[in-house]
Design a protein around this nucleic acid. Structure first.
Lengths: 264, 264
DNA sequence: CGTATACTTGACCTCCATCAACTGTTGTGG
DNA sequence: CCACAACAGTTGATGGAGGTCAAGTATACG
């Protein structure tokens, strides 16, 4: 059985962050140790805790070492929209502009462990010349974040429930695989159907039926907080999923674990 | 009658850009003349022209001096999703990261006049210390762009057709008012119902019916490429519209033309 | 055990899409 | 100046995707 917050293989809990950054740009040893050192200042929060509040002045940026969170907004009548999921290795509130306010609330969806990312922010934004790799990795991470928002808009605006679900699952598989938390077919998904509904702009009931349809068609299995995509290629085709465009001609970090159409 | 691309009052066509930037941060005289100088290198494109292509390497950043454009993506089966509208004064492809690829296509919706924004990009990103105002304005512009994407996600995920339409019109009114192209109730809207449909994730027919409902309720009038919001407060209340949070405590530029709940 | 939380299922309804036709409105060329 | 495309907008009829309501059944947890 998968656990929601599998610890990276190495001993340092900040290793996920390093993996993430290495997938975005080449990271030197000196940079790596700066990143790993952040693992010392940890904070644990229970599911449901607010990590960043909408409208609060930004505190210090954070990275997620384990657990899942989401950025969302709640309408006055209680409707909620989730903008993006935050998975281990991701940063929250890490932003080049002296962002006066966050436009969103960040909430822990499981028990989470975070670390203070100020050292990373300082290295990337204020001493970018010294820390070229970190600077570039953080910059690319920002570009990917924006790409993910755009994908989300397409899902919500122009895709059916079935396509939205398939597309989101593939995106999560991709993001988790980068930090070593997903195999080609299987990954943890500690989300309730209600949370999926709030992300996909659907009702809980319809999320349930959509998942059942995918199961009936033999495309996935879900149990104990983990999903298995039985035929990822079919989902890719059905939802027009594509990975973010290649980062650049020469500067990829890790080799990709798998491409948009994995050999199943 | 309103024209779609009213020229700013001043003689220099780049004055809209200056207005936009001044609304975001204090701009010095030296910075202002740098901005106005960009007006010299103009380019005119017909409606339908592609300003930036998805996947192309970014050319030079541009600012829009007149006309309207949109950033969008087209799915393989022809469905189209518009992410955001680009109105006079806005920049396209202006980005701190050496963004290798644009995730979107930018298309002219009317005849447009653009100018090369490289001087602005260079001042803001490479000589930020010399051009503090520009640097800050561009940075805030980026934050507002992101906020607008988030609003769009909420519209598409959690609002009804009626709410989406009201919310979008209020956003456009706000953005145009900043550059002096909207009065409190009236502004140009050179968009077909098809374009609105592609932005709002609706069908053309339903956009038509939604507009008719708004008209029947005496909330707006549309003719000759311009809208008049007869009771903006009602639209604000119906769509839970709110302006982007205050930029910061002390550094606002222009006074706002009107706040979220204008005295109608 | 018993309570809370998540998931499941059925019945019903509504919002919005689709299809198809029709009505302006431009603008262009004969 | 009119004919007629071409396009944007309008309208009705119909159906389907997905929402809502309500009741059930696991599953976890103290």
């Amino acid at each position: 059985m998968f656990k929601a917050d599998v610890r990276p293989i190495g001993s340092n809990p900040a290793e996920v962050v390093l993996r993430r950054l290495r997938s975005l740009a080449p990271i030197s040893e000196r940079e790596a140790s700066l990143v790993l050192a952040m693992g010392a200042q940890r904070q644990t929060l229970p599911a449901g805790a607010e990590i960043f509040g909408q409208g609060h002045l930004v505190g210090r940026p954070k990275v997620l070492l384990s657990g899942w969170a989401c950025r969302c907004r709640v309408l006055p009548d209680g409707r909620r929209q989730i903008f993006t999921f935050v998975v281990p290795g991701d940063a929250v509130g890490l932003c080049s502009r002296p962002d006066p306010v966050l436009q969103t609330t960040t909430i822990a969806l499981t028990k989470v462990i975070t670390a203070d990312a100020s050292p990373l922010a300082e290295a990337a934004f204020e001493r970018g010349a010294e820390f070229e790799g970190l600077c570039q990795a953080v910059s690319v991470a920002g570009a990917l974040d924006e790409a993910s928002l755009l994908d989300h808009i397409v899902r919500l605006g122009r895709q059916t429930a079935y396509e939205r679900m398939a597309h989101l699952l593939l995106e999560l598989r991709w993001r988790l695989s980068v930090v070593g938390l997903a195999s080609e077919r299987r990954f943890p998904l500690p989300l309730t159907q209600e949370v999926l509904a709030d992300a996909l702009g659907l009702s809980i009931v319809h999320v349930n039926r959509t998942l059942q349809q995918l199961r009936r068609e033999g495309l996935l299995e879900m149990r104990a907080g983990a999903v298995e995509l039985l035929k990822p290629e079919v989902l890719v085709a059905a939802s027009d999923f594509r990975l973010p465009l290649p980062v650049s001609e020469d500067e990829a970090g890790d080799e990709d674990v798998f491409r948009a159409s994995p050999s199943a």
